[in-house]
């Protein structure tokens, strides 16, 4: 472990100020909760020189509904998401994911934007946002751009963000509130642990799957949608057999690695088990499984 080296710390109060600091200093890096970044520094994997702390920018700290979207400021902490009335009422799949993310201390500091920008394949907030088909509002000095969350991740630790851009807002279409969402996670213990596999399922089903969206984390270089599984199940009758057949396809869609947290084989097996469990859980209370 390394000591945290001395660095210049900036605490902008507006987004413009933050962007201009990033424009001005090439070596500057954005920090919010620091729950991913500080361990990286202590592991010697990143040596900071200038840090721009965006967690005090009011414009980045909110959850509100407007224009057909639930909008979340990127520096909103996990704890604030957990306690958000709007998210709990409209679509709680994201809340479910955040509920077991890290520990209370980490949730009090860590932010949703940070969880996405860190681009861990195991980021727990990514699968819910993938199935919610959220859009990300990215701010640069020359203006803003919107991209679907599925296009955000490029690889482990890599996103499409340019050096002088910041993730500003996350937009979740309000209409998803009509669908039932479930997030499930397998870790090496009950809490405060990284996912071996995590999944989010969003569906609308009566006797058949009218719509279904499935996303997984920690089983590919980036969080993924299980599109083939989805299209197999879409329009199919809701039966145990169909669900079993459909989720078998998940095993071909995931591309996990073997590491200290789990082997490729285990992750592959568990991808199916957890997608299946998530579907069944989402169905429960809505339709009886035939």
């Amino acid at each position: 472990m390394k000591l945290i080296p001395p660095f210049t710390y900036y605490k902008p109060e507006t987004i413009e100020e933050a962007i201009s600091l990033l424009d001005e200093f090439k070596e500057a890096k954005v920090i919010a909760g620091g729950t991913d970044l500080i361990p990286l520094i202590r592991d010697g994997k990143y040596t900071p020189q200038k840090m721009v702390d965006i967690s005090f920018i009011d414009e980045l700290n909110f959850v509100r509904e407007e224009g057909g979207y639930i909008k979340i400021g990127a520096a909103t902490t996990h704890s604030d998401i957990l306690n958000s009335k709007i998210l709990n009422e409209k679509t709680n799949v994201l809340v479910q994911a955040v509920k077991n993310l890290g520990s209370p201390q980490i949730r009090n500091l860590g932010t949703i934007g940070g969880n996405l920008c860190n681009a861990s394949p195991a980021a727990d907030t990514a699968p819910p946002l993938l199935v919610l088909e959220a859009e990300l509002l990215i701010q640069g000095s020359k203006g803003e751009r919107r991209i679907p969350v599925k296009d955000f991740f490029l690889g482990p630790g890599k996103t499409i963000l340019k050096r002088n851009e910041i993730l500003r807002e996350i937009h979740i279409p309000s209409e998803v509130g009509k669908m039932k969402g479930v997030f499930l996670k397998l870790g090496r213990r009950e809490a405060h642990t990284l996912s071996i596999v995590c999944t989010a399922v969003l569906l609308k089903a009566d006797t058949e799957f009218e719509d279904i969206r499935i996303a997984l984390g920690a089983v590919a270089p980036i969080p993924i949608r299980a599109k083939e599984t989805e299209s197999y199940l879409r329009g199919k009758e809701v039966t145990e057999k169909k669900i079993d057949e459909g989720t078998e396809i998940v095993k071909k869609e995931v591309k996990p690695i073997t590491d200290v947290r789990g082997t490729k084989e285990y992750r592959t097996e568990m991808s199916k088990v957890f997608v299946k469990r998530a579907i069944n859980k989402a169905l429960k209370g809505e339709v009886e499984c035939k």
Partner: peptide, 15 residues
């Protein structure tokens, strides 16, 4: 390869 509490898994109160 797991010289830290991220990957050396001790029980929490929930375990």
């Amino acid at each position: 390869i797991n010289p830290n509490y991220t990957d050396y898994i001790i029980p929490t109160v929930k375990d």
